[in-house]
Design a protein around this nucleic acid. Structure first.
Length: 425
DNA sequence: CGGATTGGCG
């Protein structure tokens, strides 16, 4: 990896603000920012804006608070752009602080309000987001897109769709790529429930003669694939002029999700032939495909490929492997995978392993992990894994143990979020 | 001289 060199940027631009704008990491931006401070270079709104923007993805509340102090001292809170950018930084790191800041901002504009809609959306309070949306005297395309996304992300996909329809009906508003992107990713999120809506959005795109850009094409492919209409996903995919990793990943993951494992494998191979480099999510998709159909040999090959591509092996990847070996009855292998993990196993991993033990009646294998599972997973945080353990004891005719575990389960009606799909093989 | 905040990472 190349070492960042902020000094060089100053020489290149001979201008602190432009140097900050052109950094490639938040760290570089902060180095330049603190140097400006030390050398008493006067700040302007631009230098603060670029620093904020580059640090926002870090989602570090204390860093944001630190920058907030500087902004207060320099008197830039009254600058709408700076204040809004700061608000956005709080929205993604600490929403409570964002709310406090919003009340203190002396001058707000549409963008400031839009940022709050997204904030409430992210915190799961779609009603509050809608209250803000309604309270606005003027709304632009971004306001509508943010509101639609808020509905979609909070499972109010029918509200999101009627919001989109309302927008389309309004002559003065023109939905753009981001708007339909929000609608379509919402449709994809709810699976086949969103298919009808997704198709109507596709019709909208076609009717208006929009170009099938990479972004639009990818969300369409994702929507159709997640809804189980692989055929339509392929039609869109083939019609696209350009495709990127996300396009391929949408196709692969969608196929895997609906049990089209062989297709997923072919798509993965075709992607490699096309010279597109897979990312971590691509591997989650292809490993998921292998797990569903018991493609052990292929799964192992792809799993090893992750590091060959210089990517990190994430917990999802391990989860797929445990699932793959577990479903195939190779419990010893699954157990070995858990042992080699570089991160702590989570409840998903344990559930997957234990349910494989249950299916294959491998009680002694389950016994090797039960103690550890019960130590790391609290019964109130996940009842599902406790009922699995109890089931295993019952099947093994260890009635006392089964009873002991059952008593630990405080709430048997644990609500579980699950994907919805009517089209499932 | 210039250089701007928001809506979407599948």
């Amino acid at each position: 990896m190349r070492k960042p060199n902020p000094q060089k940027l100053i020489k290149v631009f001979n201008n602190w603000t432009l140097a900050i704008k052109n950094v490639s990491s938040p760290h570089q931006a902060l180095v330049l920012y603190s140097q400006m401070h030390r050398q008493s270079v006067p700040f302007n709104s631009f230098s603060i804006l670029f620093t904020l923007k580059s640090c926002t993805p870090l989602r570090n509340p204390s860093l944001v608070a630190h920058l907030h102090c500087h902004i207060l001292k320099l008197g830039f809170v009254s600058h709408v752009y700076v204040a809004t950018s700061l608000l956005n930084a709080y929205v993604v790191s600490c929403f409570d602080d964002a709310c406090k800041l919003f009340d203190e901002i002396p001058e707000r504009n549409i963008v400031t309000w839009n940022t709050m809609i997204t904030g409430y959306s992210r915190s799961g309070d779609v009603n509050k987001a809608y209250a803000f949306f309604k309270a606005m005297t003027l709304r632009d395309v971004a306001s509508w897109s943010a509101m639609i996304a808020a509905f979609m992300n909070n499972w109010k996909w029918n509200c999101g769709l009627s919001c989109f329809r309302e927008m389309v009906a309004n002559e003065r508003l023109k939905p753009d790529e981001v708007t339909v992107g929000a609608v379509l990713s919402g449709c994809a999120h709810v699976g086949s429930l969103g298919l009808l809506a997704g198709r109507s959005v596709h019709a909208f795109i076609a009717k208006n003669g929009w170009n099938l850009t990479v972004e639009i094409g990818t969300v369409l492919v994702d929507m159709y694939a997640k809804c189980g209409l692989l055929k339509y996903a392929c039609i869109v995919f083939n019609a696209m002029q350009q495709r990127n990793v996300m396009t391929w990943t949408a196709l692969i993951s969608g196929s895997a999700q609906h049990g089209y494992s062989d297709e997923a494998v072919s798509f993965f191979e075709a992607m490699q032939e096309a010279g597109v480099k897979p990312n971590e999510m691509t591997f989650t998709g292809i490993l998921n495909a292998c797990a569903r159909k018991g493609l052990v040999k292929e799964g192992r090959k792809y799993f090893d490929m992750i590091e060959q591509y210089g990517l990190q092996t994430r917990i999802h990847h391990y989860g797929c492997m445990v699932d793959l070996y577990g479903k195939a009855g190779l419990l010893e292998e699954a157990y070995r995978v858990i042992g080699t993990m570089k991160v702590e196993p989570n409840v998903v991993i344990w559930s997957s392993f234990l349910s494989a033990c249950k299916d294959h009646k491998q009680f002694q294998m389950a016994d090797r992990v039960i103690k550890q599972v019960m130590e790391t997973v609290k019964p109130e945080s996940d009842g599902g894994v406790y009922s699995l353990i109890s089931d295993l004891y019952v099947l093994n005719e260890k009635w006392d143990d089964a009873e002991r575990v059952r008593k630990l389960m405080v709430n048997q009606y644990v609500r579980k979020t699950r994907g919805s799909s009517f089209i499932r093989s």
